[in-house]
Computed example of a mutant assay.
Amino acid sequence: MMLNIRFTLLDSNNFFQQGLLHVLKDFHDSLNECYRLYSPLTPVELKAVENIEIIFRSQEERWGCARCYHSAYQTPHHRQMTVMILDEKECCTLKSPAQFSINREDSVAMVRQKLRLAVEHFGHHPWASLHASGLYYCQRCRIARLSSCEKKVLKLMSTGMSASTIADMLHRSQKTISSHKRSAMRKLNVNKSTELNKMLLSQMGLG
């Protein structure tokens, strides 16, 4: 009897992918050996990870995020565990629980340890993985969270209009327009107007 755990790698670094695949194969083999030899005594958390899919993903926009991910195995969302692949800079900025992320600089032993802890944690608290995966949104999903009013304000701002001009055009107060802007910046995960301006230059697919 074997544990059916699937692994999906969403990362552009082929060299890193190949190394990670070897680690995952060894990890999966060790889990199955434990499951085969000690099945009646297998920890509850190990039995609870049967038929899950573990998705390793970087923050590259091309891979989207956990919210818009469609499993090639048709794994239900609640049976998916997302593990973020981070570099040193991203480790400092992403608010993600450590047990659901690995660092590109991690040793093989560290990756195995983090993965073991993540699997154990998922077995006891599968909801925690859903929460962790929801902490990162790709740009497409961030834009989808914007209200129609926020999209309209940002689209007008992308043409170079000031908040006061937009307020006059939409028959709203300048305070309301500024509120829409602040709300949109929070959803888009930008902290400065200069960052927002860079995004507006590309129109962001606001439609």
Rank of each mutant, 00 (worst) to 15 (best):
F122G: 03
M185D: 08
Y38D: 06
L41K: 05
L156T: 11
K192G: 04
M84V: 05
C92L: 15
A118P: 14
P76I: 06
A48I: 02
L117Q: 12
G207M: 12
S202V: 00
L86H: 05
M1F: 07
I54Q: 03
P97M: 01
Y136F: 15
R140I: 03
Y35I: 01
C138A: 06
T42I: 04
E195I: 02
T93C: 07
R172M: 12
P97R: 02
S179A: 14
L37A: 13
K152N: 14
S179F: 14
K198F: 04
H125Y: 07
L146W: 10
R172N: 04
H77S: 07
F27N: 03
L10H: 09
C68T: 05
L46D: 01
L146H: 07
P97A: 06
R57I: 07
R104N: 05
L94Y: 09
M185T: 09
I85A: 01
L200T: 06
Y73C: 10
V44A: 13
L21G: 11
L117W: 04
V83D: 03
N103Y: 06
T176N: 04
E45P: 14
T165H: 13
K181M: 13
R6H: 10
C138Y: 04
T165M: 14
R62Q: 15
L41F: 08
S164Y: 08
I52Q: 04
T176K: 06
L201G: 15
F56W: 04
E150L: 06
L117D: 10
V119D: 01
R57W: 01
H70E: 10
C92P: 00
S133H: 03
K89C: 11
M169Y: 12
L10Y: 04
F16V: 05
K187Q: 09
S12G: 06
M157C: 06
L86K: 09
H124Q: 09
K192V: 11
I177T: 00
N51R: 12
N51V: 03
H22C: 00
A128D: 12
H180D: 11
E150Y: 08
F27S: 00
T42C: 11
M81G: 02
K155A: 09
P97I: 02
Q80A: 02
E90Q: 15
E61T: 09
A132K: 03
E150H: 10
A144L: 10
R36K: 14
